[in-house]
Design a protein around this nucleic acid. Structure first.
Lengths: 162, 162
DNA sequence: TAATCGTCGATTAAATTAATCCATGATTAA
DNA sequence: TTAATCATGGATTAATTTAATCGACGATTA
């Protein structure tokens, strides 16, 4: 169980869009080149981000992508959900409901449709993770990077994209 | 990103081992039959559980598996880790270290090997989930099932395995 | 000694993820 | 108006992971 590389590509790429002015945008080509990623694959990633309303696209030459919301309103979880969809990390196939006793005989009380406890626990566990990821926003990330990354590096990125 | 069905098979199967007396054991064949699962595949699951010290095996005819620890000392997380191994849910390939500026020119301050913030956040998020899953044990699960499952059903299982 | 059961490795099948290719339509600059 | 640039989307291929089966082996019991 692992998140796809798309999530990594998305989160890393979005960092470069944070400080881009409203009317400006950055193209896939530059984002891919700067990070050493596949251009076509990264475009798939941004397709998903756009569909989720995280970024908006500018078509045509000199076009590209920009954030569609305020960075403080875009959480890690938003990004993950945009990429991975809404399916839970654990999906009980309800093997519990298919046990031998039930197959053989008839069992009225077996028809009670209670939620599988195991499934419930897994879903609650995911909720813990989700809450944490929802609390971390792109705005927060940007601040953290400003503090921990050499300024030379931040400047280099800024220079590359302008 | 989803947990494998092995995790589901493991958790569901372990329930039936909780109340088994010390000197007794239940075989793969019965566990598989009762739940309608593949016998050979379930044996792979128990191979992992045995290697992790969660269950112990009894070879030979009339053999099978039993819990190796007290149910209160076996958590959901223990089981998941036994099955899925120890790899984190997110492994940053550090594409941040691979950006264009660095490949072209040399940048001393870029050699500082700070941990990628994005990676750190993801790992902390996983930790939240892990903490929750570590707090739920098989003993707890057993109690919960006793409360929420029709007794007819619990008896049916017990009868099947004895 | 034969049947039963766990163990292990190899193999196959199915499903998912990663990545590429190509055709299309919007936009800008020459 | 035309050519180049860019996002968009579908189809396709390749690689990786997961699911499942098969067969051989050793331990155990009746």
């Amino acid at each position: 169980m692992k998140y796809s590389v798309m999530v990594e590509y998305a989160l890393h790429s979005l960092v470069y869009l944070i400080d881009v002015p409203e009317e400006d945008s950055i193209g896939i080509k530059k984002l891919a080149e700067f990070q050493g990623l596949s251009e076509t694959y990264l475009s798939k990633v941004f397709g998903k981000l756009a569909k989720a309303g995280i970024v908006s696209s500018v078509p045509g030459v000199k076009g590209g992508y920009r954030l569609q919301k305020n960075p403080k309103d875009i959480s890690f979880w938003d990004v993950i959900q945009a990429i991975e969809g809404h399916k839970p990390i654990f999906q009980c196939k309800n093997i519990r409901e298919n046990f031998a006793y039930r197959r053989d005989k008839t069992c009225d009380s077996c028809d009670v449709h209670s939620i599988c406890t195991i499934n419930k626990v897994m879903l609650e566990a995911e909720q813990q993770m989700r809450d944490y990821l929802s609390s971390k926003t792109l705005a927060w990330l940007n601040e953290d990077l400003k503090d921990h990354l050499p300024s030379e590096r931040i400047e280099a990125a800024k220079a590359f994209f302008t």
